[in-house]
Simulated assay, not measured.
Amino acid sequence: MKEKIKIILIHGFSKNSKDMKYLKNELCKRNYSCVAIDLPLTFKKMEINFEIFRNKMTEIINNLEEGEKIVFISHSAGGFIVRNFLILEEYHNLIKSCILIAPPNQGSIFANFFYKYTPLRLFCKTLEGLTTDNFKDLEVYREDKIDIGVIAGNKDNILLGKIFYDEMGDGRVSLESTKLENSKDHIIIPYNHHNIHYNKEVIELIINFIKQGKF
Score class of each variant (00 low, 15 high):
I5G: 02
I5L: 09
I5R: 14
I5Q: 12
L9Y: 09
G12W: 01
F13E: 00
S14Q: 06
N16A: 08
N16T: 13
K18P: 00
K18S: 13
M20Q: 10
K21G: 07
N25L: 11
E26P: 03
E26T: 03
C28L: 05
K29Q: 12
K29W: 05
K29H: 11
R30D: 02
R30E: 13
N31H: 12
S33C: 08
A36T: 02
A36I: 00
L41T: 01
L41H: 01
F43G: 02
F50I: 06
R54T: 10
K56W: 04
K56L: 12
M57S: 03
E59A: 12
I61Y: 08
I61N: 12
N62S: 15
N63Y: 03
E68Y: 05
F72Q: 07
F72L: 06
S74M: 03
A77Y: 03
F80H: 01
V82D: 05
F85S: 08
F85D: 05
L86I: 08
L86C: 04
L86Q: 04
L86N: 04
I87D: 00
L88I: 09
E89W: 08
E90H: 11
E90M: 07
E90V: 00
Y91E: 05
Y91R: 10
N93Q: 13
I95D: 01
C98Q: 05
C98R: 02
I99A: 04
L100H: 09
L100C: 05
I101C: 04
I101T: 03
N105H: 13
G107L: 00
I109D: 10
I109G: 04
F110H: 02
N112Y: 06
N112L: 07
F113Q: 03
F114H: 11
F114S: 05
F114V: 12
T118L: 12
L120H: 02
L122A: 02
L122S: 09
C124F: 14
E128D: 11
E128K: 15
E128L: 15
T131N: 04
K136P: 01
L138K: 07
Y141E: 04
Y141C: 03
K145T: 13
I146K: 12
D147K: 13
I151M: 07
A152R: 07
G153T: 03
D156E: 14
I158M: 13
I158L: 15
I158C: 04
K162S: 12
K162T: 10
I163C: 11
I163W: 13
Y165P: 07
E167F: 02
M168E: 13
G169S: 08
D170I: 05
D170K: 08
R172V: 09
V173Q: 00
V173P: 00
L175T: 08
S177R: 11
S177P: 01
T178A: 14
L180K: 11
N182V: 01
S183M: 12
S183E: 09
K184A: 11
K184Y: 04
H186S: 06
I187G: 04
I188M: 08
I189Y: 10
H193C: 01
N195A: 08
I196G: 03
I196S: 05
N199A: 06
K200E: 14
K200R: 13
I203C: 10
E204H: 13
L205Q: 07
L205I: 09
I206N: 05
I206W: 09
K211C: 01
F215T: 04
